[in-house]
Design a protein around this nucleic acid. Structure first.
Lengths: 351, 351
DNA sequence: TTGTATGCGTTATCAC
DNA sequence: GTGATAACGCATACAA
């Protein structure tokens, strides 16, 4: 009851197992890595000693000797937007199949801090990096010595997996047109044209032009403040109603949050959805299902995005440095989920 | 252009710096760990060589030599429920202050898989574990050789940080009473009484009894299916309306999702909120703010939960094995956020 | 089938 | 101030 207590905690290593069994450390190592070359008796002996001494393997030592950590770094802006948390959920799910362990950092809005995080990740010998944050230009990632794949962000110099936003917008416009909307509106945040999500606007414009549909694009520098967004969208409601008093209106929003707020505004003003107004959101986030009228939306296929990201990384990790020459931009098609803010969908019971 | 290409990728180590500067590896190490004992000229020389050769530190080797990984493992059931993703967001934010790196696994509903994940984490020498999943009993965690802290789950044999759910329920009941509700209802999932969230029910029952308020508790085995939940809650609406036709009703839900669905049901049936029905949710999740009528809710203080979790872990990590004897259950008080489904709050403009 | 010797990249001990 | 040398825990040629 004096001091030896501290040593009780000491890790048991191959040396201990070696002493306990009378076999060499090499043989212990073989037990794990090449069990075929072991005599059955010795395998038994080792097996017993391992559980007797409660051996706990040390993969870090293994890494130092072998080289591959099976670590992948993730930098994600935050976990407040559903897109990010859902994507991470799918990424982490790949462990069972691919075996990669994930070390995650928050990018927030600080490029300098993010570079520190990346350095920390590199010092832990990550084998690849998944980048969702927007703080740093892709040229920086291209200069790193490890495979990187970006998701739905600027990707000029680096591999990426993105949603086919253009197609998503096309789906939306075509549905609104089929449902006899006479004027179409698109609402989007003020974002750089290098970000894939910008294609939602481009796709809207292109498809409207192609189909000769009267339309307006409303770009605004939204922030994350709910009440401010509400005000902005309510103003939009007033102006569009005044400008196009009799025509059936179709709205395509860049996300479900804005769509939901606009829906609430319409309901409060006793407008008829989907008879006079049709609404389509983007992301298939929970609010689109939980809205007072379930919102038709364009769903990004998270599982495909995540799986392609890991596949792309693994290909580079396994393939070695020579494969790092050609860029690969994988495009995943979205799916339209028709709910009750557009007409052609069946109404949910209870409405 | 033959084969040396492969070697270009080779990591530069202290040995390389040593050769380049003519100094010993020990001195290079000192440059990082005890710069005071270095001559200024040599420090300069090393500094130059480091950037010349683009040295990238290897913390894994450092870990093997020193012992502390600064890794903390996290097991979280999923990233679909906002509670989890928001909590993780706050946990990851502690990096700047505490320096811990986080390796995250998904618990889902599989106890066996989760034990494999924990083993994997242990093999990477994590120094602590944050447990949010419900699959494994706390006795198992107590038997691990590292500090563990659980969040809002069964915690009999292990340290934990939980919300004061009892107080949250009390806040809700008291507000509903102040606003002259005549019958109170509490809706909760069928959960074990060992889970902290169970106290929301207990707190409701206790406070109602204490204040002699007529009340009913509705426990149901909800699943995550939206339409099914809708049906169940719509039935609840019908039965309570029939049973208490003239009395003002107050509903306290175990989460905002149910509160929002019930709100939508009330609106669809042209009921008056908050004149005839008052609603209070739990969690302050986005839907509570984005609902057609913003929902009054009990907010768990995520920042405090996360900070206490890390503090508790660090205390044990730094304190050593002797501190592992006494259990610590930290309780964080929630905050009530009054919005428009209860009467006393100011109405949002536009309504 | 098993053991010896050496290395992975860093830190710690002890000399000089 | 600086440098040999031995650790950390495991893997791998090579030898036997």
């Amino acid at each position: 009851m004096k001091s030896r207590v501290v040593n009780e905690d000491k890790k048991v290593t191959f040396t201990d197992i070696s002493k306990a069994t009378g076999l060499s450390k090499t043989t212990i190592s073989r037990y794990f890595n090449n069990p075929d070359y072991l005599s059955k008796e010795n395998a038994e002996t080792i097996s017993h000693a391992l559980s007797e001494l409660k051996y706990q393997e040390n993969k870090l030592a293994k890494v130092l000797a072998k080289g591959n950590t099976e670590f992948i770094g993730i930098i994600v802006p935050n976990f407040f937007h559903q897109f990010y948390s859902f994507f991470i959920d799918h990424i982490l799910s790949t462990y069972d199949q691919y075996g990669y362990k994930f070390i995650t950092f928050l990018g927030r809005d600080n490029a300098e801090a993010e570079k520190r995080y990346i350095n920390e990740l590199l010092s832990y010998q990550i084998e690849g990096l998944i980048e969702l944050s927007h703080n740093i230009h892709s040229s920086y990632f291209a200069s790193l010595s490890i495979p990187v794949v970006t998701i739905e962000r600027e990707d000029q110099f680096i591999n990426s997996v993105n949603t086919n936003n253009l197609l998503g917008a096309k789906y939306a416009v075509e549905l609104l047109e089929r449902n006899n909307c006479e004027v179409l509106f698109h609402i989007n945040n003020k974002i750089s044209s290098h970000i894939p999500a910008y294609a939602r606007t481009q796709g809207f414009i292109d498809t409207c032009q192609e189909k000769q549909i009267e339309s307006e694009v409303f770009i605004h520098a939204f922030n994350d403040n709910y009440n401010e967004t509400y005000q902005v969208l309510e103003n939009l409601y007033f102006t569009t109603k005044k400008k196009y008093p009799k025509q059936k209106k179709g709205f395509f929003f860049c996300n479900d949050t804005y769509a939901n707020i606009f829906l609430n505004i319409l309901i409060m003003h006793h407008e008829n959805v989907p008879d006079d107004y049709e609404l389509i959101g983007f992301d298939n986030s929970p609010v689109s299902q939980q809205a007072i009228i379930p919102i038709t939306t364009i769903s990004q296929n998270m599982d495909k995005l995540a799986e392609n990201a890991i596949m792309l990384l693994e290909k580079q990790i396994k393939g070695g440095p020579t494969d790092g020459q050609t860029l690969e931009h994988i495009i995943v098609n979205p799916t339209m989920i028709e709910r009750s803010t557009t007409r052609s969908a069946p109404q949910r019971s209870g409405h």
